[in-house]
């Protein structure tokens, strides 16, 4: 198969399958949780659950002082990774073009040089995250195969994107195809690993915040 045919597959059939599995899987997981339901809470609330829920969605973005003091490197690295990853995903012009074509939404992007630098930063933060996971006895003990898989499928799109843009390892056409395929792998794997948090984090924060707010306690 030529590089062009490979790229055609990645942009065509491959993407269709990946998107289908992604949407199917994510909704499966979402409805699986939602349809479980909770018993109605008959207690009289001391505070507002809605307010607590909304507040927590925002406040959980920042770490608690005590937790931060314990593991500053891991938390800062978490920020670096998430900001870098989201910037590379949402502020690189060719990516915006994808969202525009598929969803009709577009917004201004960043110059390629900055995206390239953020890509490098993101790759390093992922490597550091793995190092921290492997060196911390507790984290290492808690880690399952699924965690390492999630790490790998997150790293690959950033890494292959960087290699493609900088013309490294493979000719551009082939590397672009590999890059798109790696994103498709991420889309297929995401619903069945902890990567579902890309959507469920809001739900979880809302639920926690709502419960705490209803009871009138700090969440």
């Amino acid at each position: 198969m030529t590089a062009d045919a490979f790229l055609s597959f990645a942009r065509g059939t491959g993407f269709d399958w990946a998107l289908t599995i992604f949407v199917f899987g994510m909704l499966l997981r979402l409805f699986e949780v939602l349809s479980l339901g909770r018993k109605p809470d008959l207690s009289e609330g001391r505070g507002s659950g809605v307010q607590g829920g909304l507040k927590t969605i925002v406040t959980r973005t920042l770490p608690r002082a005590a937790v931060f003091a314990r593991e500053p490197v891991r938390i800062i690295n978490g920020y670096v990774f998430h900001i870098g990853f989201l910037a590379v995903l949402f502020l690189y012009e060719p990516h915006i073009e994808l969202f525009d074509a598929k969803m009709g939404l577009s917004w201004p992007g960043l110059p390629t040089g900055i995206i390239n630098a953020l890509g490098v930063l993101t790759i390093f933060s992922l490597l550091l995250a793995l190092a921290l996971r492997l060196t911390s006895p507790v984290l290492k003990f808690l880690s399952t195969g699924s965690d390492y898989l999630a790490w790998l499928v997150t790293l690959l799109p950033v890494l292959t994107g960087y290699l493609a843009y900088n013309h490294m390892l493979l000719p551009y056409t082939a590397m672009l195809a590999v890059h798109i395929l790696s994103v498709e792998l991420l889309m297929v794997v995401a619903p069945f690993t902890k990567l579902t948090h890309m959507f469920s984090f809001m739900l979880a924060r809302w639920y926690q915040g709502y419960r705490a707010g209803h009871r009138g306690v700090e969440s």
Binding site: D16, L19, F31
Partner: peptide, 28 residues
């Protein structure tokens, strides 16, 4: 654009969404 998928997966997507929601609800 090169970064845009070549097929229009609109109908398959709708199907996938309905199937995913239904399967999720069923499992739930």
């Amino acid at each position: 654009a090169l970064s845009v998928p070549t097929d229009d997966a609109g109908n398959i997507l709708l199907g996938a969404a309905v199937a995913g929601a239904a399967a999720g609800a069923a499992v739930g």
